[in-house]
């Protein structure tokens, strides 16, 4: 596993991650490219720099934990975990196929190194807070990171968890909102607007960091600030672009849940060369 704090090296991993995402979803002929591509820098910065984890010892009790609450974006998680050495890179092309460990949504029965089975939106923050509470009881340095979709936080349970996290001072959990502004049926602002989003999390008692979700140095700084914040949980609002890195997918609601064709795959990989 390549662990590095060098933004240039992390950027190279991010590019390779995007290629793997495009290839696996094209091979699967279904899946969610847009919200996978928007979260690439977030996950690469976490897995290859920030997280304290060990692919050779995935059940290490004091490890940091990561939950992809927006489970439909699992191609980014699979690509990142595979490159870290948790699972075989060469099998990524079997995404969504019968018998594959790379299930349509994250499933701990197939990949025990996952921290949670997700796919039904709204539940990951509560789970992450539960894990963070266990770490606190154990006096463990373990921290828990939860990536939420922007559409996902329309779910009421997120705000139940937000109230709980602040009230109980769960400062070892970090929520990262992948704010790519698009959900399945269109633009978030046209479906159920989240604004003022930063103010919402602040009013729920969270420390909030508004950040460019594609800037690795900005994300590194945000995660460091979250770790240094005591007494309250941190929400990182990552301003992202749905479909980031592939011109014809960027900001296009179509690619929330539609796989690229073979031609589109070729074109996308040329852009990501």
């Amino acid at each position: 596993m390549l662990k590095t704090s060098d933004p240039a090296e992390l950027q190279l991993i991010a590019k390779q991650t995007r290629r793997l995402i495009i290839e696996m979803i094209t091979a699967a002929k279904s899946g969610h490219p847009g919200g996978s591509l928007s979260a690439v820098e977030i996950l690469v910065t976490l897995y290859n720099d920030v997280l304290r984890h060990d692919p050779a010892n995935p059940r290490w009790p004091d490890r940091d934990r990561f939950i992809l609450s927006k489970g439909h974006a699992c191609p980014v998680l699979y690509a990142v975990m595979a490159q870290c050495g948790y699972t075989p890179v060469e099998e990524l092309k079997n995404l969504r196929k019968l018998g594959s460990i790379y299930q349509g949504h994250p499933d701990v029965r197939f990949i025990p190194a996952l921290e949670a089975s997700t796919g039904s939106l709204g539940q990951g923050l509560s789970l992450g807070i539960g894990m963070a509470l266990a770490a606190r009881l154990n006096q463990s340095p373990s921290r828990t990171y939860v990536v939420l979709g922007d559409g996902e936080i329309q779910e009421g349970q997120i705000w139940e968890a937000a109230m709980f996290g602040a009230y109980h001072h769960v400062d070892n959990v970090v929520a990262i909102v992948d704010y790519n502004k698009i959900q399945l049926d269109g633009f978030v602002k046209d479906i159920l607007d989240l604004e003022p989003l930063v103010d919402k999390w602040k009013s729920f008692g969270w420390h909030v960091i508004d950040v460019d979700g594609h800037s690795i140095p900005a994300l590194q700084k945000a995660f460091a600030e979250a770790s240094a914040t005591k007494g309250k949980p941190t929400a990182i609002i990552a301003q992202t672009i749905k479909g980031k890195g592939v011109s014809f997918m960027e900001n296009n609601p179509k690619y929330h849940g539609v796989a690229p064709t073979a031609d589109e795959c070729t074109k996308a990989l040329q852009e990501l060369a």
Binding site: E115, G128, G130, M131, L133, E160, F164
Partner: peptide
């Protein structure tokens, strides 16, 4: 009291917090 978590009137959150505690080795 240190092992008791009052979740307020929010059963969905309570159940999933319990699952998180269980995933991390507790018996909730």
């Amino acid at each position: 009291p240190e092992r008791f978590f009052e979740c307020g009137i929010a059963e969905s959150n309570m159940v999933a917090i319990g699952s998180g505690l269980a995933s991390a080795g507790k018996i909730p």
